[in-house]
Amino acid sequence: MNPETEPVVEVTDLVRKFGSRTVINGISLKVLRGETLVIMGGSGCGKSTLLRHIIGVMKPTAGSIKIFDDEITTMNDRRLDDVRRRFGMLFQSGALLASLTVGENVALPLWQHTDMSAEEIQETVAQKLQAVGLNGFENLKPAEISGGMRKRVGLARALALDPELLFSDEPTSGLDPIMTAVVDKLTLKLTHGAGMTAVVVTHDMTSAFRIATRMIMLGRGIVIAQGSPDEIRTSPDPEVQQFINGEPDGPMPLNLSQDDHEHHPHVKARPLVSARHRFRHKLP
């Protein structure tokens, strides 16, 4: 098989329901080797949920997910771990272990999954931190650095094992424009330069158009548009245009309806008035 067209991630008819609310309603997508797929969509459209299914943290209601041609939805934990060793994941908040230092966080996958000596690990950690512009921060705790720095450490950790596939959940949100450009440049260097495949969830349009080789837009739990960045940019679809240009008015619904909220398992409907007494002592 031609490696260029071999799908690294293949999602077929994925459905996920929380109670009676359908968050993902039949999404199919393929990510080919060497591609950078950007998944876009408004807040609450299910893009983070989709990503959590692909990395195997959540199990779908129906549908199939294949990574490296292996079905992960029915896989046991041991085999899932084998697959997970081959990809890196950058969480939205960085998800660093608060009890470890920055350096230890990056070293963690190396300790666990390689036979490297202490010196080799130290060298690799320094090199990964250098790549995200954080050399010399090894001995600080995650609580002592800023949110943007935590995210970059998260990226360094995701890249520690030199994965062939990288998932990022909003890698640039909370970063300043310069750091955004640095992270984008790093992503480009890894994908175009080193042939890594990347799946990036974002709603930062500048960054999305900078790194994507293909884009998918989600809404209402389905794929509403997909194509190359140019196709998306010139798409006639009014929803797509509204989103990429960031216009407040358009076909996209502003919020989930009240009805959706009432069916959400974690959100109990509560009249706003009843919350008032909690703050009464502060009001005149």
Binding site: G56, V57, Q92
Partner: peptide, 15 residues
């Protein structure tokens, strides 16, 4: 750790 996705991150790192 659960709330800040740290436990999920461990799982995804195959730990």
């Amino acid at each position: 750790m659960k709330v800040s996705e740290e436990i999920e991150a461990l799982e995804v790192m195959a730990i």
